[in-house]
Amino acid sequence: MNKKFVKYYEKGIKYLLALVAGTSILILFLIFIFLFKEGIGIFAKVGILNFIFGMEWLPASEPPIFGAMPMIVGSLVVTVGAGIIAIPFGIGIAMFLAEVAPRNLREILKAIIELLAGIPSVVYGFIGLIVLSPIIKDLFNLSSGLNAFTASLVLGIMALPTVVSISEDALNAVPDSYREASLALGATKWETTIRIILPSARSGLLAASMLGLGRAIGETMAVLMVAGNATIIPHSVFDPVRTITADIAAEMGETVQGGTHYQALFGLGVILFSMTFVINLITDLVFAKTSNIQRGAQL
């Protein structure tokens, strides 16, 4: 090959890749900008505080009322509920996998958990709707099985694989020398696990919990199908709730571009984006402390 040609070819490749990277980055920033640009209108129209703290969401009334509080509460309730299920169970399972389970069992369980992580959310929603909600209804003697409790249960199961795999990475990242040192001092395996391994892995476990919550708060289809979707502030865990995600999904089809309702949904998108951003940010800060744990399991 001609030397000059090689040089231009190399340059060409470099510029082509720079163009590709530029395009991707532009696209990604476009999402931020578009979301905020379309959402800012509603903040201007009803006032940012009225929008966030308003207790009524009546897009079809005359005039329409847009107060996001019922959905914010709804999202928080089911997310906290999911966390109560997914975090202790997730960390417990991770401890079992990392410290107790024999190799073969561990590989089988990990494969199952990976499989569970891959099942689409609409399938979880479907199972929640068809299988779980009738059971919950009968078990607690309710008028409907579609409520915050059922949604939390489904979301908790959905967040479980995330919590398990990242927690397990965190536990495995604890150097074996710690285990050996503790055992050599006469501690039992259990004492070693509780007193040495868990505290050493705590930032990784915290990150796992945060990512689990992030997964739960952003989940749409499952909550849309099982949470009952009432735009009211719930008084008990057995009341129906509507989350931010479910509201966007439920009303997105009815809106007119540029209309107030359209802007209001983008406003909800901004709130949701900010919530997940805060969760990610906390996770990143925690992760910065434990650099050797991979984020891959977030998939």
């Binding site: 931020f32 979301l35 952003g218 749409t220 995600t245 571009q257 983008f266 990143d284 977030q298």
Partner: peptide, 23 residues
């Protein structure tokens, strides 16, 4: 850019749906 990419990977899919509808 790296921080933006990591954060976008965590943005709920319904937000992408909203974006896709709008754009």
């Amino acid at each position: 850019i790296r921080i933006a990419i990591i954060n976008l990977a965590g943005v709920p899919s319904v937000v992408y749906g909203l974006f896709g509808l709008g754009l």
